Computed example of a mutant assay.
Amino acid sequence: METPQTEEERQRSQQLMAAMDALNEKMGKGTVRRGLPEKNAPWHLRCAHRSPRYTTQ
C-alpha cells in the first residue's frame, strides 16, 4: 500500500528520479542507487556473527 503524496512531494520525487536517471545514463548503469544494502555486502557477514549481547560485551 502506497502512502498518499501531496502534489509537491510527487513533483520532488519525479525530479529526484530524473536526476538519478541522468547521472546513471552519464556515469554508467548502477552508479547512483537508492539507499538499500546489497545482499552480499562485505559488512553484512560481520554483523551476522554478532552475539545477542554485542551492546554490553
Results as ranks from 00 to 15, higher is better:
Lys29Thr: 14
Glu38Arg: 14
Leu36Trp: 09
Pro37Cys: 07
Leu23Arg: 04
Ser51Cys: 08
Gly28Tyr: 09
Gly30Glu: 07
Arg10Ala: 15
Pro37Gly: 11
Met27Gly: 01
Met17Cys: 00
Gln11Met: 03
Glu2Phe: 04
Arg53Pro: 00
Thr31Ile: 01
Val32Ile: 15
Gln5Arg: 12
Glu7Met: 02
Leu36Met: 15
Met27His: 08
Ala41Asp: 10
Arg50Val: 02
Leu36Ala: 13
Met17Ala: 11
Asn40Lys: 13
His44Asn: 08
Leu36Lys: 11
Glu8Pro: 00
Met27Ser: 06
Leu16Tyr: 09
His44Cys: 08
Lys39Glu: 08
Trp43Tyr: 09
Leu16Ser: 05
Gln14Ile: 07
Thr6Phe: 00
Pro42Phe: 08
Glu7Val: 13
Arg33Phe: 04
Ala41Phe: 01
Leu23His: 04
Lys39Gln: 04
Lys29Cys: 03
Met20Phe: 09
Ala19Tyr: 06
Arg34Ile: 15
Leu16Phe: 13
Gly30Ser: 02
Ala22Asp: 08
Arg33Ile: 15
Glu7Ser: 08
Arg10Glu: 14
Ala48Gln: 15
Met20Asn: 05
Val32Tyr: 03
Cys47Ile: 15
Thr55Leu: 07
Glu25Ile: 00
Leu23Ile: 11
Gln5Tyr: 09
His44Ala: 15
Thr6Met: 00
Arg53Asn: 05
His44Glu: 13
Glu2Asp: 14
Glu9Lys: 04
Glu2His: 04
Glu9Trp: 01
Gln15Glu: 14
Lys39Ile: 03
Arg34His: 10
Met1Asn: 05
Leu16Asn: 03
Lys39Gly: 02
Gln5Cys: 01
Gly35Glu: 10
Ala18Thr: 09
Gly35Thr: 08
Arg50Asn: 02
Met20His: 02
Pro4Tyr: 03
Gln15Cys: 01
Arg50Pro: 00
Pro52His: 12
Leu36Phe: 04
Asp21Tyr: 10
Trp43Asp: 11
Gln5Thr: 12
Thr56Trp: 00
Met27Phe: 08
Trp43Lys: 01
Met17Glu: 14
Leu45Ser: 10
Gly30Cys: 01
Tyr54Thr: 01
Gln57Glu: 12
Glu7Asp: 10
Lys26Thr: 12
Lys29Trp: 07
Tyr54Ala: 12
Trp43Glu: 11
Leu36Val: 10
Gly35Trp: 05
Ser51Ala: 13
Ala22Asn: 03
Pro42Ile: 09
Arg53Phe: 03
Ala41Met: 03
Leu36Ser: 10
Thr55Met: 05
Leu23Asn: 07
Thr3Lys: 05
Glu38Asp: 07
His44Val: 14
Gln11Glu: 07
Leu45His: 12
Glu7Ala: 11
Asn24Phe: 04
Lys29Glu: 06
Lys26Tyr: 06
Thr6Trp: 00
Leu16His: 10
Tyr54Cys: 08
Pro52Trp: 03
Leu16Glu: 14
Leu45Gln: 10
Pro52Glu: 13
Ala22Glu: 02
Cys47Ala: 12
Gln5His: 02
Glu9Tyr: 01
Thr3His: 09
Ala19Met: 09
Glu9Phe: 02
Ala22Val: 00
Ala41Thr: 01
Thr6Ala: 00
Gln11Asp: 02
Gly28Trp: 06
Arg34Phe: 12
Pro52Asn: 11
Ala41Trp: 06
Gly28Met: 08
Arg34Val: 13
Thr55Glu: 05
Arg12Thr: 04
Glu7Ile: 04
Asn24Pro: 05
Pro37Ile: 04
Asp21Gly: 14
Thr55Ala: 12
Gln5Val: 06
Ala48Gly: 07
Leu45Ala: 08
Ala22Ser: 06
Glu25His: 04
Arg33Val: 15
His49Pro: 00
Thr56Arg: 01
